[in-house]
Simulated assay, not measured.
Amino acid sequence: MNWKGVFPAVTTKFHADGSLDMDLFFKNIDFQLESGVHGIILGGTLGESSVLSQEEKITLTKETVDYVAGKVPVILNIAEGATQDALFWAAKAKELGASGLMMLPPMRYSADGREVVTYFKTVADSTDLPIMIYNNPVDYKTLVTIEMFAELTECENIQAIKESTRDISNVTRMINRFGDRYQLLCGVDTLAMEELLMGAVGWVAGLVCAFPKETVTIFNLVNEGKIEEAREIYRWFLPLLELDIHPKLVQYIKLAETHCGIGSEHVRAPRLTLIGEERERIEKIIKEGIAKRPKL
């Protein structure tokens, strides 16, 4: 598994009646692929996985794998409260043809270090799919510590880390401890260029859902050592990237996708579409970003 590159955590598209809108979903996927993304991640926070039925997750995974047809890896996120459910999805992902897994610590129960490590090891030992651990203590309240990652080194298929601690120095800390044992991918849009400069090899991105060309261009320029060119685009991008670090990131990013012609605002309850002052404020950011969009 090559974890290097831009991996969109894609949104799930719905019709007004709440059913899956696969046509619009694939329209967005086409734009992602044409822009040069390096993989697709399904079932994350942006994908509204918590409000999808088991059947819908299976449909979304199977149809995406079939549609992408090996052009890039398709990664399924596992965010479950029970180990048996995580094991089910690891096996189902393999059956449906997914290329790898992204895994959060156990949901809803605040597991201690021993429990988190056991959870990850149990799932890793059950599959040969490569795994990326999603370390996001800010939103999900469980920190996967360096000591815990040291215990996980024995699981060869745990290969990558989505680094979302909000601590840029953690990239250096991890590299100092583990070298290249783990591939580090930035999981916070507003820190992406900084973490790429410090040694992260990938970007699990949110605003890429609406602005894939700009996201991929920043990644490529950093990797080519063209820092000034990347910085200029990144500075333009930052007000938009900040939409990714809000509890309503799903609504914000779906509104951006809509303005870019590659998505819709439809969300699943309890989420509601934006109204009033909040909507006006977010639309202003999006419209200004589009108006000042850099020529690539």
Rank of each mutant, 00 (worst) to 15 (best):
G179F: 07
T273R: 04
A86C: 11
I290W: 11
Y119N: 09
L238A: 00
N136G: 12
E283K: 10
N77Y: 01
L129I: 02
G261D: 03
E194Q: 14
R114P: 00
D85Q: 08
V188P: 00
A93Y: 09
F219P: 00
P130L: 09
V37G: 09
D125G: 07
I75N: 07
A269D: 04
L296C: 11
L249E: 02
E214N: 05
N135L: 02
H38K: 14
D128R: 02
I168L: 08
K57D: 03
A269F: 15
K71H: 02
V72E: 10
A200C: 11
G276H: 08
M148F: 01
K141G: 06
T127L: 08
E56S: 09
A90P: 09
A93G: 08
L240Y: 12
E232C: 00
L104T: 14
I245S: 15
T165L: 04
S35Q: 08
R293A: 10
A98F: 04
N28S: 13
L104G: 04
N170D: 14
P105I: 05
E163V: 03
L76Y: 10
P8T: 10
D244S: 14
S169G: 01
E228G: 07
L20F: 06
T64M: 11
G5A: 14
V68P: 07
A150C: 15
S35R: 14
L129T: 05
K295Q: 14
R108I: 10
I233P: 01
D17G: 12
E278A: 11
L46E: 11
E242R: 14
L24S: 14
P73K: 06
L20V: 10
L249A: 09
E257A: 04
T127I: 08
G36P: 09
V117Q: 02
D30S: 01
H15V: 07
Q54E: 15
I227T: 12
I218T: 00
G44V: 13
N28T: 07
E232M: 01
E194Y: 12
D21F: 13
T45A: 09
K162A: 11
Y119P: 00
L240E: 09
R231T: 15
I218W: 03
W89E: 15
I233M: 11
D139T: 02
L184F: 01
A86K: 05
Y140G: 02
I168K: 07
D128G: 04
S110K: 13
V72T: 10
R114N: 14
L96G: 07
I233A: 13
P247E: 01
L152S: 04
T61H: 04
I262W: 03
I41W: 10
V117I: 13
G113P: 03
M132K: 04
G225L: 07
A111W: 07
G70W: 06
D23S: 15
K71M: 09
W203C: 01
G39T: 00
F88R: 15
